[in-house]
Amino acid sequence: MRFFMKLILAATVAFGAAPAQAQDKSIIVASTTSTQDSGLFNYLLPLFKAKTGIDVKVIAQGTGQALDTGRRGDADVVFVHAKSAEEKFMAEGFGVKRFDVMYNDFVLVGPVADPAGVKGGKDIVAALKIIDAKKAPFVSRGDKSGTHLAELALWKDAGLDPAANKESWYREIGQGMGAALNTAKAMGAYVLSDRGTWISFKGKDGLAIAVEGDAKLFNQYGVILVNPAKHPHVKADLGQAFVNYVISPEGQKDIAGYRIEGQQLFFPNAGK
């Protein structure tokens, strides 16, 4: 086996697929599609690298999957947005400590034509009830991501459960945020999106925000260092440096500084 692994390494090095010796001042952060697709990391990580010299490799997954990656010890830090799932992760002992980092908010996006007539509302629960009553098409992430969990919580608040009832207008696609927006556009459906992905999404034509500004649409992000007691190879020092940075005044200022088309996407609230 060891010989075979050496062979594989030799082959990859020979073709330049892997550096002979990895520049090992790097950590792996398991995060969500929303932070990657919104472009936050592309903006934030070079700033972090300039300050610390640490390379951050981001794996963008749904929150559920990202936490699972941390559980398996395949990431040093998780950076996600589903508080209840994060607290479960902590309770299982996989994390060192959870910190609030920032929030953004969800928006209900729908076709410009607004077939359910919910546009301009401020009450997300009321809007979902109307969508259900009118059987307007609705696309759900269906991937146990933070956004998906938030969406399910909202349906629960509305006293509805279209997923369990297998409503024909309710489509679970099991994919990321961008894919869900693409699908909603193609199907003329409503979809719950985080604002960051929505603002940076390139194919908005035909879609528009229907409902925004409800306090229930608040979306909190947390960061957790994976527990080295569970996985000894976790790069605790470098990972902690990343955690410290994003919750530091400096990192918080950097997060607030990320804008697309003049709009601030994420609102830092560490330690508040």
């Binding site: 697709d37 490799k57 961008g178 693409n182």
Partner: peptide, 26 residues
């Protein structure tokens, strides 16, 4: 590979990523 920017991002995963970002032309 995890589609890590600058480390394990290949043509195909980059295509998947740009698709999910809605940048279909790219």
């Amino acid at each position: 590979g995890g589609n890590i920017d600058g480390f394990t991002r290949t043509m195909t995963t980059a295509i998947a990523l740009e698709t999910s970002k809605g940048d279909l032309p790219l």
